[in-house]
Design a protein around this nucleic acid. Sequence first.
DNA 1: TTGAATTAGTTGAAAGCTAAACTGCATATT
DNA 2: AATATGCAGTTTAGCTTTCAACTAATTCAA
Lengths: 161, 161
Amino acid sequence: MAVKRTKWLNTSEMAAWRSYVVASRRLMDALDVDLQEHDLSMADYEVLAHLSEAPGRRMRMSELAETSMVSKSRLSHRMKVMVKAGWVEREVCAEDKRGSFAVMTEKGWRAIVRAAPDHVASVRSRFLDNLTAKDQDDLAKIFDRVTARLRKQYLESFNKN
Amino acid sequence: MAVKRTKWLNTSEMAAWRSYVVASRRLMDALDVDLQEHDLSMADYEVLAHLSEAPGRRMRMSELAETSMVSKSRLSHRMKVMVKAGWVEREVCAEDKRGSFAVMTEKGWRAIVRAAPDHVASVRSRFLDNLTAKDQDDLAKIFDRVTARLRKQYLESFNKN
DNA sequence: TTGAATTAGTTGAAAGCTAAACTGCATATT
DNA sequence: AATATGCAGTTTAGCTTTCAACTAATTCAA
C-alpha cells in the first residue's frame, strides 16, 4: 500500500488550531484560579454542580462520573476528599448492592450556591463577553459537531480493531 | 453599595458554554490518547515541538516554559523525564551562569518527527475536519479575542490589588 | 442452577502537578 | 565595594490523577 504523505496544516488551519489551543489552556487556568477562593477546581465544581441538579441531590457514582466527565477512579478519590470536607455523603444502593449513591449535604449545597455566582461571573467575563449572539450560535454548532464526531470515531474504533 | 444580583446564563449562552467545555475536554482527551502510541502527552509534545523549531533546537528553560505554557517548575520536572528518555540534554549557559539550555538530541528529533504526522492527522480528523474555512477564521478571531482579554484582565489585576 | 462473564465501585502504587522554599548568580543602589 | 534586590532554575513536599488490579454483586447462558 502507498505510504500516506502528511498533509500539514496550512496558515489558516494552523491559526485556528493554535488560537483555540492557547486560549483554551489559558481560559481554563483562569477559571480554575477564580474558583480557588471557593476551594474548588473546575472538575470538583462540575461534579458538585451536576449533583446539585439531580433529583434529591443524589446520584449513582457511575452516572455522576459520566456526566461530569471524570473517570470512576478519579471520582472515587475526589469523593473521599469531598466527604472529608463535609460536602457529600455516601449512601448504599438498595436495588443494586454493588452500587452507591453520592448525596449532597446541606453544607455542600451551601458551598455550591456560594460559588456559583462567582463562577458564572467568571465564565461571562473571561469567555462569553467576547462572543456576540451569533458567535454563541456558531460556536455551539461547531463544538457540538466536534463532540458528535468524536463519539462516532469512538464507536467505530470498536468495530475496526 | 447595592448587592450585585447574579446574571445567570440564558439558553444560548449556556448552550455555547457547555458545548465548548464538553467538546474541549473530550477533544484533548482524544488527542492525548492518540499521542500515547508515541509515549507523549499533549504537554510534552508541545514542549518538544517548540524546542524542535528553535534555532539549533536549543532554548533557554524560561522561554521554553513560556511558549509551551507550562510552569518553570513543571518544565523542570518533565525535563528530568525527557533527559532520561534521551530526547533532550541540558547545557549550561555561558552568558548567564544561572541559566541553562534545553537541547534536543538526535533521538528527540527523531521522536518528534515520527510523532508529528500522526498528531497532525489527529488534529485534522478530530477537530479541523469539522470546520469550514469560514469557521476557521471565525474561530481564530474569537479565541484570539479571548486570549487578548485574558491578558488584559491579568495586567489589570496588578493595578487594582 | 451453577459457573462464566459483566458491571459497580474501590484501592494501591506510581507518575504527574503545584506551590513554596531554596540556591546561586546577576544587577541595582548607595 | 558592599549590600540589597531580583531573576533563572531546581527541589521538596503534598496533593491529584492514572492505571491496573481487585472485591463483590449481578446477569447471562447452557
